[in-house]
Design a protein around this nucleic acid. Sequence first.
RNA 1: GAGGUUGUAGCUCAGCUGGUUAGAGCGCCGGAUUGUGGUUCCGGAGGUCGCGGGUUCGAACCCCGUCUUCCUCCCCA
Length: 456
Amino acid sequence: MAQKPSIPKGTRDFLPIDVAKRNYIFSTIRNVFEKYGFNPIETPSFELSSTLLGKYGEEGDRLIFRILNSGEKVRKADLEALAADNLPKFANSLAEKALRYDLTVPFARFVVQHQNELSFPFKRYQIQPVWRADRPQHGRYQEFYQCDADVVGSDSLLHEIDLVFILDEVLSAFHLPGFTIKINNRKILSGIAEVCGELEKIVDITVAIDKLDKIGEEGVVQELTNRNISSSAIELIKPLFQLSGNNEQKISFLTDYLKNSEVGKQGIQELETVINSVEEIGLSKGILEFDVTLARGLNYYTGAIFEVKAHDVQMGSICGGGRYDDLTGLFGMRGLSGVGISFGADRIYDILTTLNLFPSDLEKGIRVMFVNFGNTESKAAYKLVYDLRKNGISAELYPDSVKIQKQMKYANDTKVQFVALLGKSELDSQSVQVKNMHSGEQSQLSWSELTTFFNK
RNA sequence: GAGGUUGUAGCUCAGCUGGUUAGAGCGCCGGAUUGUGGUUCCGGAGGUCGCGGGUUCGAACCCCGUCUUCCUCCCCA
């Protein structure tokens, strides 16, 4: 009856070493978040379906994991909807809860619900898993961690600037060989659509030009045509494809390009403020690049848009973010602006693994393991173990009196730093042999010297 | 959600046009070394060939279904 065990697609198990690596990522991010004044919160893994559905667009809804109603609640199934072939409505009637799809929408819900307990601007960070019913691929999982930092209740561009520095500081701390922080502004995209006389088609236009580096100029033109963008508008959009040079040059081009669009001009001004402020102080290792084709997350972003790509490695974006002026409006709280970023911990994990960038000391085992020589000796050894632990030194006694070789091998495999041998002769002289497993060096110490030795 | 691709020992992979007892390296276990790991030498164990059907005298190999892997779309961290 023994069936071969397995886990669902797009999920992974984590061995101790994997967890150590992931904790290294989390703590690096957490330290920077806290340095910039963000406080941690947590929200449930699952929310009411109504909280999540409709917030990520049609495509997003499809990727939300639903939790099937149980018990008597299965009776709530809307059979009429099924009969009418209205599958989405039927599906919604089957599941009134769903696993969270990201951390931003639950955060918006959280802010609205706890508005009277929070001081604004409210700066929170959140490191928790999210779930997407996506088709797994390289760097995409159905369960993965996001590490978010958001500010709500302040329009100040200072936050955008802070967030750029957070991105730079965290990724620099990982020793990535290089990375580009791409920045754009939704208002610039609106301005482009407006200037082209296709303001209503902003989503179509931006989705198409977002693919420029992937499908090339011709592909984008084709895509624009397919999306019913007029050829005159396409002609107006075309110059953007050739946009090159440094940030300053691009900005100056767009300043002229958008001179007849109020919203566009505002976008330029915001972008310029952020870029100039960042450049004045300077990034550590990242490159800040204005990219007009960057158009992610159009469902709720209204101002700055961020995305980070690591150099020298094939991987989708490792961070994303932006400003959303009315996210809490969806939950009935208007006039509250938010801006935030999200680190994709699992993608960063994969990149650090590929580039061999994890610190080597993550695998460090306990400080000292006592070899078990049998009842009499281990009794004395255990007293010493207990004493070491009382002094804050991690220690253990091998549980069974088996062959020394086997015990040494266990110590070696688990990266024990020192092995202590306390056999018959050591018992007689109240001493232990202490072996440094890294250097192989061995010395004899009296019992009273042990704590001092390991406290060094 | 659409199309393609992959699955053989714990891991990485061989396995001829379908043909007897399915192989290697690494790892694991044991011994050389019953008070010394990481190196070396010797020996050993370990496989429902992803799963379920089908074709065939005969299937790891061919066909169908299913799950999984990776890839391209879609979308995204």
